[in-house]
Each structure stands twice: as structure tokens, then as C-alpha cells.
């Protein structure tokens, strides 16, 4: 990763070893049983595993339950506006490609109010991890229908049941030009969650991960069957994606080998809703990364003045 945009003055203790303590921020205030706890643990474990420097790591979020995430990390965090995490993260990474950038969004954040940014961030392909924590509902504001709420599911805004079929974020992301990493995992399978995060972090490009996430208060029943019955889940396994963690092989017996290079197969798998599919659906590292194609070397102040004077000559009388 390029560090060129940074001054050398910041001291770095290279012998520092980071443990979980170094990443733990405030005590998480999500409801007991909320899937976000498990996501937080997996993220912290990833940072330990990759030994990311807390000061060089930024978690950017929007607004919603899941967007409280940065407060519970001891890295830099940016808890901004509803739906707008991706533009902020894009700005951070454009300016500072040396930083490790993670984005945490909810379903309302990502595919409703911020849907335009989701489409375009996918297209920019900036090197970052984008987690969409999908509990199929607006939780923080107490149970309003979201775009991923199953059709017919009752909420406070649509008590007769959601009028529309649920949006399929994976299928949609796979349809966006320049998509480079699209994965789905579930917070109740920690080993798979972690393996997916690791693959996403190691991928160079925009890594979109939809995390199926239980809300024990408002949508407890939505993933209940899948949690209880591993038969409903199909693991997409591949050395270039996520391999089935050994500990799970006995439980999740539906395993399919899916080569993440195969976009059309990925789209077919995403569109077929007969099963919940977990794994890396698509990955292509050959797509150029926006912050790299736009990268330019810094110029000293004196240098800029010299060039600016040349430019102004064009307007000289």
C-alpha cells in the first residue's frame, strides 16, 4: 500500500504487537442478542490478525444501529450522516491511500437513502471494506420497513405487510460495472464471518460484504429458520474466495464449489433465492482502483508557485 501521502515525522513503533485490547473502544450498547456484537468481535479479531495499526485505521459509518460501530473500536472513527458513509470514506481514501478504511452501514443506509453512493462506490472501486449489516428493518427508529424487508412482513410503517418484494443487494451489486468483490456471510456463523472479512480486507479494491444480521427485537423470526436449520444454507467455497472453515464442515453440509471469477454463475446464484448462500460470489482484482488511478505525487509549495506562475502567464496582459 502506498504511504507516499504521509509525512515521515509520525513515529512508528514497529515492534508494537496489537492485541484485542488495542482495538476495543467503548462498551457496545446494542441490545443483548443483537447480531452486531458478533460482527464487532469478528472485525476486532481481523485487526488483531492483520496487526493493523489503530491510528492508521478508520471506520466510517452512517446512521442506524450498526453505525454505532466506530464508537466501539479504538481506531479512528467517523460516525457521519444517514446514507453518506461511502462518500466520506471515498474522500478519506482518495486523500490518504495509506489508511485502512472500513465502512459499516445498515440496510437503510446502504440500499435506501444512500443507494446512489452504493452504486457509485462500487463503480469507483476504491480499496476499502464495505460492510452492509442487513437486519431487514430500521431498528434504531423502531421498526420501519426497509428495502430488504421481506414482502408481506409487517412493520410500523407498513403494518399490513411490506408491499414490495425485498431488494436483493447481492444481485444488484453484481450488476454494477466495475464491481470487484461481492460476498455474503452471516453473523451467527462466526468462523465464516471472520474468513469473509479477511478475504474482503485482503482483496485490493472495493470489497462489498452483506452480513445477514439478526435483530432480536424487531425481526427475530426472519433468520430464525436459517439459524436453526443449517440445511437452508449453502456455502460457496473456493480457494480464491472463502474456503469452508473446517469447524463448520460437519454442520453446513451443503457446500458448492464456486469460482468467484465466474460472474454469470455468481449472478445466477444471487438471483436464486431457494437457499441462503454464503461466500464470495465474485472477485476480480484486475479492476483499477480509483485512488490509484487518480493518485498524483505531492508538490512542494515552491514547486506549485513555479507552475502557477507559468499558468498565470497565459492570462497576462
Amino acid at each position: 500500500m502506498s504511504q507516499s501521502c504521509c509525512s515521515l515525522l509520525t513515529p512508528v513503533d514497529e515492534d508494537r504487537e496489537f492485541s484485542l485490547d488495542d482495538y476495543e473502544g467503548a462498551r457496545a450498547r446494542w441490545c443483548p442478542g443483537c447480531g452486531d456484537h458478533s460482527v464487532l468481535t469478528a472485525a476486532q479479531k481481523l485487526l488483531v490478525d492483520e496487526q493493523l495499526k489503530p491510528e492508521e485505521t478508520v471506520f466510517v459509518s452512517g446512521i442506524g444501529c450498526s453505525s454505532r460501530f466506530p464508537h466501539y473500536m479504538k481506531t479512528y472513527g467517523f460516525h457521519g450522516l444517514h446514507g453518506r458513509a461511502l462518500p466520506v470514506a471515498t474522500g478519506v481514501k482518495l486523500n490518504r491511500p495509506d489508511l485502512n478504511v472500513f465502512v459499516v452501514m445498515g440496510d437503510g443506509d446502504c440500499v435506501s437513502i444512500g443507494a446512489g453512493h452504493w452504486v457509485h462506490a462500487t463503480r469507483y472501486n476504491v480499496d476499502m471494506v464495505a460492510l452492509m449489516l442487513d437486519n431487514n428493518i430500521y431498528g434504531l427508529t423502531k421498526m420501519q420497513t426497509s428495502p430488504t424487508t421481506p414482502e408481506g412482513y409487517a412493520s410500523n410503517t407498513q403494518p399490513q405487510g411490506s408491499w414490495l418484494p425485498a431488494l436483493n443487494p447481492i444481485e444488484a451489486t453484481l450488476g454494477i460495472t466495475n464491481a470487484s468483490f461481492v460476498a455474503q456471510t452471516a453473523e451467527w456463523i462466526p468462523a465464516h464471518l471472520f474468513a469473509t472479512f479477511q478475504a474482503a480486507y485482503r482483496h485490493r479494491g472495493f470489497a462489498f460484504v452483506r452480513v445477514l444480521q439478526r435483530c432480536p427485537v424487531f425481526t427475530e423470526d426472519i433468520y430464525l429458520d436459517a439459524v436453526r436449520n443449517p440445511e437452508m444454507i449453502e456455502i460457496l467455497s473456493h480457494p480464491d474466495g472463502v474456503e469452508m472453515p473446517e469447524s463448520l464442515a460437519q454442520i453446513y453440509t451443503n457446500q458448492v464449489r464456486h469460482d468467484p471469477k465466474n460472474l454469470s454463475a455468481a449472478r445466477d446464484l444471487a438471483a436464486d433465492d431457494s437457499r441462503l448462500r454464503l461466500g464470495v460470489l465474485y472477485r476480480d482484482e484486475s479492476n483499477p482502483r480509483y485512488e490509484e488511478t487518480r493518485h498524483l505525487p505531492l508538490h512542494s509549495a515552491e514547486d506549485k508557485i513555479r507552475i502557477l506562475n507559468e499558468e498565470l502567464d497565459k492570462y497576462a496582459v
Partner: peptide, 10 residues
């Protein structure tokens, strides 16, 4: 948003 993200980081 992009301008703010950039300002925030430098």
C-alpha cells in the same frame, strides 16, 4: 461528503 472525508484526513 468526499470533500469532508478528504479534509478530515488531511
Amino acid at each position: 461528503g468526499v470533500a469532508i472525508g478528504a479534509s478530515y484526513s488531511g
